[in-house]
Write a protein that binds this DNA or RNA. Sequence first.
DNA 1: GATGAATGAGAATTCATTCAT
DNA 2: CATGAATGAATTCTCATTCAT
Lengths: 205, 205, 205, 205
Amino acid sequence: MPKIVDRTERRAVLCQAAVAVFAEQGYHRATMQAVAERAGVSKGGVYEYFDSKEQLLLASAEMLLSAAFGQSIAALERDSGTLHERLESFAREALGTAEDWSELCLLLLQVWAELGPFEEGPLRTMMGRLYRESADRVQAVLDAAIENGEAAPHPSRAAALAIMASLDGMVLQAILVPDEFRSALATGAFYGWCRSLVPVAATEE
Amino acid sequence: MPKIVDRTERRAVLCQAAVAVFAEQGYHRATMQAVAERAGVSKGGVYEYFDSKEQLLLASAEMLLSAAFGQSIAALERDSGTLHERLESFAREALGTAEDWSELCLLLLQVWAELGPFEEGPLRTMMGRLYRESADRVQAVLDAAIENGEAAPHPSRAAALAIMASLDGMVLQAILVPDEFRSALATGAFYGWCRSLVPVAATEE
Amino acid sequence: MPKIVDRTERRAVLCQAAVAVFAEQGYHRATMQAVAERAGVSKGGVYEYFDSKEQLLLASAEMLLSAAFGQSIAALERDSGTLHERLESFAREALGTAEDWSELCLLLLQVWAELGPFEEGPLRTMMGRLYRESADRVQAVLDAAIENGEAAPHPSRAAALAIMASLDGMVLQAILVPDEFRSALATGAFYGWCRSLVPVAATEE
Amino acid sequence: MPKIVDRTERRAVLCQAAVAVFAEQGYHRATMQAVAERAGVSKGGVYEYFDSKEQLLLASAEMLLSAAFGQSIAALERDSGTLHERLESFAREALGTAEDWSELCLLLLQVWAELGPFEEGPLRTMMGRLYRESADRVQAVLDAAIENGEAAPHPSRAAALAIMASLDGMVLQAILVPDEFRSALATGAFYGWCRSLVPVAATEE
DNA sequence: GATGAATGAGAATTCATTCAT
DNA sequence: CATGAATGAATTCTCATTCAT
């Protein structure tokens, strides 16, 4: 009669611990020991659920990032509200509040550093997929807005990528120049950028 | 009479080797041995010029990044040409050609990952200073353009930070979704974003 | 259920190995590798029980020296026998037999060399405490003997320190001029010195 | 026309520097660099005069110790004064003043630690010779005193070795329990021990 | 002779991973 | 399943020694 544990649940707990520790100490400086302790399990226990540190990073990153990206883009895909309103919601969701955001930013930095210069690798694949999917969804929203005349016709892929790029640039500002980041947040700067990148239809102005 | 060596020159050579190796393998995976070999010196030789791996990263990053940032922003600060022309030059300089750019991007990712969540640390200080200085110089250009009526009055700090953020976001695209990056480059997307972020004066249009 | 190990027992085994290796090769020449091999564990295994080589020396020295000092002084503190008899027992215990003694001497030399010129440091503290405690106990025995008239009244602290000093001087002779040491041992020289340093009461002679 | 330097003079300067550095930092922690700097020469320069660090220790120790031992024993060998007076002079010379003494003690500790458990080795040979010569000279003084009736007949070799041992024990106290050492010095304890170890002729008392 | 840059053999220490219990 | 003791490869950094100038 083996102890019944929900493996999925357990993996999630470990991922959360891993995210916290990796964000705090950096992926390479963090030890499996530290992750295990944070999760309240033994060092060896982690290996019941993940084959290696690398896989733990992969799973942790995927869990956190797909949730975060999904949530913010969902705000853009809502049925209700004008495009501008939804862009503003998106900006608010994406940048969120300082605490979670900070952990997310720090983990992103760690993941980015692990991408490496080569095409291969599961981390690249996952991150690339996430990036493209996110850009696709943003672009779809923009295309729909162009379709129904809310936005002026413009290269929507470029705009989508510009929005993505700005968002990532904000990640860095949050970490590197937090005071500038906070004031940009307060003045709604990121939302403003999104707006500038998406020309509205002439009639709507 | 000891062997004559130009210590500054020597440090530069080591930094170049370090940049290449750190970009290629990642800061933590790279060994001092590998850097030394790349530079054509012995393991111990590196320590004649840098006290630790950390200091090597700091010096390497500072050397590469201040050169790269300086060069591209200089294009923006030129006397000749319209603001738009200079923005385009800036974009071209900043994104440059694939080879050097790639190394720069990869090193940036490594440096970002080393920033850590704490306020302290020489790497943070250096990077923060570089970031602020760059933003300051971009902003100064925008302010001058507003002054002489080339650009419409607008919050220039926000625009400067938006340009910086977009640029950093491009770094990531270059590594993470290189095909999208290349096509964005081909269509002059980054330049377009800079333009959208800087509203021109009504008369000039 | 993890492998059951008695950590205290394990530390003791490692200390014994460390004592042997440090005595044989000298503290600085000895490698952690060598200690580990002597103890039959892997290099990393030592670090499960001691944080550093320095701490290993500290623990090893404390274990060996407190045992050795304690044992010999205990012979002096016995209830039975005259002061002279107990001084002789003490001398015999302290100088013991060649084998253990030699290891003890060699380790002492290593520890002394690590004391350094500064007041601070756990090794100094431990050794200072051990020295004072030993001197205190010897002095207490002398005071008791003065009290009950077995020994003539005399500065007992000075005598205790003289005995300690002579003993340490013997350590050096054992290593440096072993033949003289052995003949001094054979003629009971050290015991004789102790006697000369402790004037007997007039009536007892 | 080679620069004329007095090699013997130069060696002496280097030895003095070596003594200071070895005493201060310990033989193994001290670097040749540090010794060279203290002596005001270049790192490579030391090797003009000594083939290795080990030889530098050997020469330094011999220079310092033979001078120190010689000087104090000379006080014992003087023609003028009673044995007791000369014993007192000896004690004063040997323990000297705190500063020089401290350096001497610290170097002794370092040398002792380098003796190693084996019979061979130039350091052992030198130190053994020095020890025996010193003991011989002390013994000769005692024998002469016995001869002329100043001291009672007694095993003079044992007394000489006891004096040597006590002296070495003082070295340790000076380093390990400096406060006890200083008070022992103030009360003339060491001289007292020497006296107890050398029974005077009955008539003299 | 003197210099100090360069070398490279080591040594302490860390930590992902394994596996006996 | 879970534990945590043990492993050992890998890495940073040190420093005695050499040698071109």
